[in-house]
């Protein structure tokens, strides 16, 4: 399925670069999920696609639709706002769940205050 909207040359180049760059950055972040050791290190990898990757693709989409419909289209901002607000919440919640599980596991073996540093 090779098709694309008709855009002027400058816009096509900017949209193409933005989308390609965002996708590449997201892929690097996902690669980090595989390559990095330990849960706490992997959490950082997810943020890559959720911040810069998302922003680049949304900017490309905004530019593309603004030119196609010949009026500023900004509803992509809703997704950007929503993702930037919710991703940190989920990551903090996950990290807290992980640290809680690590501590309770450690406490069952040795009683300590639990630095919870585990790299596997």
């Amino acid at each position: 399925m090779m098709q694309a909207p008709d855009l002027p040359t400058w816009a096509a180049i900017i949209v193409g670069l933005l989308v390609l760059g965002g996708a590449a950055l997201t892929l690097v972040g996902a690669l980090g999920l595989i390559r990095l050791p330990g849960f706490y290190a992997r959490v950082h990898a997810t943020t890559l696609g959720a911040t810069a990757g998302m922003a680049a693709i949304l900017l490309g989409s905004m530019l593309c639709f603004s030119i196609i419909q010949t009026r500023p289209v900004v509803h992509e901002i809703l997704i950007a706002l929503f993702v930037t607000l919710t991703t940190p919440v989920t990551l903090i919640l996950l990290a807290r769940a992980a640290i809680y599980r690590d501590r309770s596991e450690k406490a069952s073996r040795v009683s300590s205050d639990g630095g919870a540093e585990r790299e596997e």
Partner: peptide, 15 residues
Amino acid sequence: LALIITATPGSLWVQ
């Protein structure tokens, strides 16, 4: 501050 620290890759607010 929690949003800022977590949204920058490389640092994560835990508690």
